[in-house]
Design a protein around this nucleic acid. Sequence first.
DNA 1: TTATATTCGGAGGTATGCTCCGTTTAACAA
DNA 2: TTGTTAAACGGAGCATACCTCCGAATATAA
Lengths: 193, 193
Amino acid sequence: MTDEKKPRRRPRSDGQRNRENLLNVAKAAFTAGEVDIPLDEIARRAGVGIGTLYRHFPNRDALIEAVYRAELDRLADAAPVLAAQHPPVEALRAWMRLFVDYIAAKLVIAPALNGLAGGTGALYAQSGTVLQGAIDGLVAAAVASGDISTDIEPVDLLRALAGVSNYAAGPGWETSAKRLVDILIAGSRTSAS
Amino acid sequence: MTDEKKPRRRPRSDGQRNRENLLNVAKAAFTAGEVDIPLDEIARRAGVGIGTLYRHFPNRDALIEAVYRAELDRLADAAPVLAAQHPPVEALRAWMRLFVDYIAAKLVIAPALNGLAGGTGALYAQSGTVLQGAIDGLVAAAVASGDISTDIEPVDLLRALAGVSNYAAGPGWETSAKRLVDILIAGSRTSAS
DNA sequence: TTATATTCGGAGGTATGCTCCGTTTAACAA
DNA sequence: TTGTTAAACGGAGCATACCTCCGAATATAA
């Protein structure tokens, strides 16, 4: 349990630079829909050898996961900001819409993500925690203000949203997703109690 | 250009039998979580050569799609049955829950499905139509009976459901999905109008 | 400047997706 | 029943992608 780390040396600057390069190239490729791009190609575009890629990310899934997690963190960070700017229910709504936007515009890695056959459990468990922390705060605030029923499980909303992002095919899906957000908010209100 | 088909002969019986064998074996494998099973192995289990598999399904995606579509049809067929057995809103709710059950118990091919990198659009468009037909009927009935707001797009509900199925990780996800169905129904009601 | 831990990078082993084509077999006609 | 033929069978083999391994290069600390 003692997680002693002996950073005898500072991490090498080129190492970190290469790592970020790889991450950026991978994100760009996935966003462009090149989900099945060979790892060799990613390494080439990033200007590094294949060996370097594999040291940073032991396998394909690890790379996808890293890209995914980085974007996820940014989304999670937006929650407190929105909470400070809007009343509870609207903050929740805004964040859910942001979720949709994010997936739509910048992150089409959803298919790639689901391609993580097998190990999804662990990944979702980990990263789900991050997002859950974000939405938990928003929901808690909305419950406290009396706008939302107390028996709503934040994770339910998260799942619906995640689903929509996967279904991101066909024209007009984005407005459809926005509508869905409204339905979810309406369904969570205390009105009918 | 005239694509006249002259079915001079009936399709061979062994051909169809082999095709169904392959489909069953593939479904079983996917359901068992063996998403990455080599196609050679599927052919072996079905008792046919690899060449036979590839004639029926030109590539891996085609096989997955075939399995997917077959199951989808069965789900769609359940809609009219439920509509005949329950009042509109309850029929809708029941069908949505069935959707969840189906994915949960018998169809863990969701990850495989999403692995159809690239061509998802076409597939979803096609098969989405089938499901949409099913839910359209249910929603129309509920709208007609005045239970549900008229501005609900059935496809929205579909998307949320599809999403949940992808998020099928972690314990208790199933009850969570059921809760979500209730939220969606509640959010679609006319009460607040 | 010297020492050394860390990173780099690509050749190559392994395995999987898919093709090709000679052989086998079921359907049809006489 | 028997011959003809179009269609299905099946596996050897090629292309390619993932990943490992290890000598060379290099940034950091003394």
